[in-house]
Every structure is written in C-alpha cells, then in structure tokens.
C-alpha cells in the first residue's frame, strides 16, 4: 500500500499513534471500570471521555497560543499541555 500521498512524517505518526493508544486504553478502562458522571472544577458534569475531549481540545489551543504568542521551544508548551491534561482528567 503506497501511502506517499498522505505525506507521513515521524512526528505526525507518533502524534496519531499516541491518540489511537489513548482511545484504546480509554476503551479498556471503560470496560474494566465504567465511568461515573461527576462534577469537578469545570462548570458541567463530565464523564471520563468528556474530560479527555476537553483536555485534548485545551491542549491544542495551548499549543496554538504557545506558537502564536511566544518564540520559546514548543516542548515547554507540550509540558503545560500535559499538566493541563492531568488536571482536567483528575479534578475536572
């Protein structure tokens, strides 16, 4: 199968692999112990999947803001996004 038209690169391949791994592990987690909707610091009741979505969307915006507003290395932005992700998943 020739995937040249999709113009794959190593970073994007890693990125999508991580997303797929997240979805698979969330599914397994859900089967083992189904999520209970609850309310954290976010102004709405969320399930685990909701919090993953909010975390990922927020991470995307954190990266965009980092690129748009600073000239610093993107790894710092990634660090902030991971912290944000953990906070949302745990206390969101």
């Amino acid at each position: 199968m020739n995937l040249e038209w999709m113009a794959w690169t190593i970073p994007t391949a890693i990125f999508f692999s991580v997303i797929v791994l997240m979805l698979i592990s969330m599914t397994i987690w859900q089967i083992l112990s189904p999520t209970i909707e609850r309310r954290g610091f976010l102004p709405l009741s969320t399930t685990r999947g909701d919090r993953l979505f909010i975390g990922l969307l927020g991470s995307a915006y954190i990266h965009l803001a980092w690129i748009g507003l600073t000239d610093l290395t993107l790894w710092l932005g990634l660090g902030i996004a991971i912290v944000w992700m953990v906070i949302v998943m745990r206390w969101g």
Binding site: W5, M6, A7, T9, T12
Partner: peptide, 14 residues
Amino acid sequence: MTVVNYSLQDIFGP
C-alpha cells in the same frame, strides 16, 4: 490526518 501531515511540511510536488 493528511492535512495534519501537510501542515508540518513544505510540499513541492509528489
């Protein structure tokens, strides 16, 4: 996914 791949590269042709 293809758009994400394109967004990080300078594409000149196939």
